[in-house]
């Protein structure tokens, strides 16, 4: 008798094609069910964010940050003897527009705070995204005066030797990422960002700030390779691979509207800190009147690189509602459309 169905396998235990397809379909359903179950039942990540009021840059910012460390459980034993690298947001300089960059006095506060907790060394390092002339940005931002006075070393990450590692994030097509070799010589990488809206990503905070660690001599200006690979994909890849240790966001005077360069100053009067960058950025978004779930890269980072849901972030210090200051969003900029927190 001719079989109408091709046998898969041999002998009495062989399967017909129909049986095989049923089994295959069942397997797929079972596997996807397990996968969905794992996703659904995956424990929610939890983190903390500390919000402190700081009405201007002349206050005791180091004391405020030491208080933040205490609230966040960063004990002196954890910092003692560590080599700390602070990565500010130095984009460009423009006369009369200091709100483009992390304020130098916020960096001084962070330096003093880490030293008070016993850090062995603190250094500052940045590879500005737009300007090839890092020294000009370093000087004109006012940071050179502060760091020279404090005898703190500044490293230009744009013209620095790199080391290459596998891209753990795998969100972009980049198989590897090249970071500054300097990073092998430090214990903590701290993103000291600026609170700003952004015309491509909605908001730029501690996660986006890490674009600046990618050396210009490998990635171009303004980090062309990363822009080509997708800004949001690259933000996620960099953070997933680098695994930064801490975030401090300068929200004393931020930038609203057409950030990260051409926007207007926005006085908020806060500093936001935390161990988890996604949680810190989500908190900043809420302070800015932005829904972090509508900022695409933060939504994609949720429960992977960190929590962004309000219920998953324990707020220390000031309540968000007490400091919320809606940032101006521009209707004609797609990344800023429909992201207002309601």
């Amino acid at each position: 008798m001719a079989h109408s169905q091709t046998m898969i396998g041999h002998g009495d235990g062989g399967w017909t094609r129909r049986e095989f397809l049923y089994a295959l379909a069942g397997g797929i359903v079972l596997a996807s069910g397990i996968s969905a179950g794992r996703w659904y039942f995956r424990p929610r990540l939890q983190s903390e964010a500390f919000v402190a009021k700081a009405s201007d840059y002349g206050g005791n910012l180091s004391g405020l940050m030491v208080e933040g460390f205490r609230e966040l459980g960063v004990a002196p034993e954890e910092i003692r003897g560590k080599r700390i690298l602070l990565k500010p947001n130095l984009v460009e300089t423009s006369m009369g527009a200091p709100h483009i960059n992390t304020h130098p006095l916020v960096l001084r506060g962070a330096i003093e705070a880490f030293l008070r907790l016993g850090a062995a060394t603190v250094m500052v390092a940045e590879g500005p995204g737009h300007r090839r002339d890092t020294l000009a940005v370093y000087e004109e931002s006012g940071l050179a005066d502060v760091l020279t006075e404090d005898r703190i070393r500044f490293h230009d990450l744009n013209y620095i030797t790199g080391y290459t590692v596998q891209n753990i994030g795998r969100q972009s097509s980049l198989r590897t990422l090249t970071f500054p070799a300097l990073f092998k010589e430090v214990d903590w990488i701290v993103s000291v960002a600026k609170m700003k809206t952004h015309h491509w990503t909605g908001a730029t905070l501690s996660m986006k700030n890490l674009f600046g660690v990618m050396p210009g001599i490998y990635y171009g200006w303004p980090k062309n390779v990363l822009h080509h690979a997708g800004i949001e994909n690259s933000i996620l890849d960099i953070n997933a691979t680098l695994k930064p240790h801490f975030a401090i966001v300068d929200g004393i005077v931020g930038m609203e509207g057409d950030g990260p360069i051409m926007g207007d100053p926005k006085k908020v009067g806060v500093v936001v800190m935390g161990r988890n960058l996604a949680a810190v950025d989500a908190t900043c978004c809420r302070i800015m009147g932005i829904d972090p779930h509508k900022v695409s890269y933060l939504e994609r980072a949720d429960n992977w690189l960190g929590p962004i849901a309000e219920g998953s972030i324990e707020q220390r210090g000031e309540a968000i509602a007490a400091v919320r200051t809606n940032f101006n969003l521009i209707d004609t900029i797609p990344a800023q459309q429909g992201i207002r927190l309601v």
């Binding site: 737009h130 090839r132 002339d133 303004p222 057409d258 051409m262 900029i333």
Partner: peptide, 19 residues
């Protein structure tokens, strides 16, 4: 000259001496 573009969302960018 800036680093490439002249305007983003209708706003003219800043020139830089080196470029």
């Amino acid at each position: 000259w800036n680093y490439g573009n002249t305007k983003v969302f209708g706003v003219e960018l800043h020139p830089a001496p080196e470029s």
